[in-house]
Design a protein around this nucleic acid. Structure first.
Length: 230
DNA sequence: ACATTAAGTGATT
DNA sequence: AATCACTTAATGT
């Protein structure tokens, strides 16, 4: 028997696995950036990985480089001195963080905290390149502008949900957003963690979750919640 | 079997 | 919607 046939599946598997940086960049940003820019990014950027729940940027950190997300999702939240948190929005693959952009321009400290929601792969670009490329590449300029636009919209949405939605609706939105970025309907989280993210108390979360379950919107388990209505 | 942590609930503000 | 106080359920050692 031809050994090649025997090992073909394994061979194909091997072929698929190793992706170089430039290939990964092409996959996520190829439709956005011109070849020249992609190559420059690949040359300069530093590749980094973060495990889920690791802090990527903390409050008051000085921003020296801007991230481009290749894989996974990052939770962006506000935090006060006592450690009370409030989740603002998530950024996903193909996104960058508007906060770092504004920090780079103003040389200020970060006003937000960024935590890896899932395992995250990203590229860090030195901040000087950010303004340099603005003039050099129109696709980069487009990307930055577009990014500001969508981040601002998400921010407004976050404000709206706090100002105009009641807790129950807010909580349901929280669950749906979380299911969205993790690409699964089963969310692994405790009621206490949700309460922290939404800046409310665990008791309130438990009650509202119970009523959502009665409405057949979700299924409750210990340490996890299944979102039925997506 | 016991301790610890997560979740459920009534009553009060 | 928040807090207290207490119960029940699940899980770890």
């Amino acid at each position: 028997m031809n050994p090649y046939i025997l090992f073909l599946p394994f061979y194909v598997f091997l072929q698929k696995q190793p992706t170089t940086l430039i290939e990964e960049l092409h996959k996520q940003y190829g439709y956005l950036f011109e070849e020249e820019l992609l190559e420059e990014i690949a040359k300069i950027a530093i590749y980094k990985e973060f495990e889920a729940n690791k802090t990527i940027i903390d409050i008051d950190n000085y921003i020296i480089s801007i991230p481009l997300v290749l894989q996974g999702a990052i939770k962006i939240l506000r935090e006060d001195k006592e450690g009370d948190e409030l989740v603002l929005y998530y950024i996903e693959k193909g996104d960058t963080c508007a906060m770092t952009l504004s920090c780079c321009m103003g040389q200020t400290k970060s006003k937000i905290k960024a935590i890896a929601e899932t395992d995250v792969k990203l590229m860090m670009l030195p901040k000087e390149k950010m303004s340099e490329w603005l003039g050099k590449y129109s696709s980069w300029q487009e990307f930055i502008l577009q990014s500001y636009h969508s981040r601002l919209n998400e921010f407004i949405e976050a404000v709206d949900s706090i100002a105009f939605l009641n807790m129950g609706e807010r909580l349901f939105k929280y669950l749906k957003d979380k299911a969205m970025v993790t690409h699964t309907d089963i969310i692994h989280v405790t009621h206490q963690q949700i309460a922290n993210d939404m800046h409310t108390s665990r008791v309130v979360v438990s009650r509202l979750l119970k009523s959502l379950e009665k409405e057949q919107q979700i299924e409750l388990h210990r340490n996890s919640i299944k979102v039925l209505a997506l």
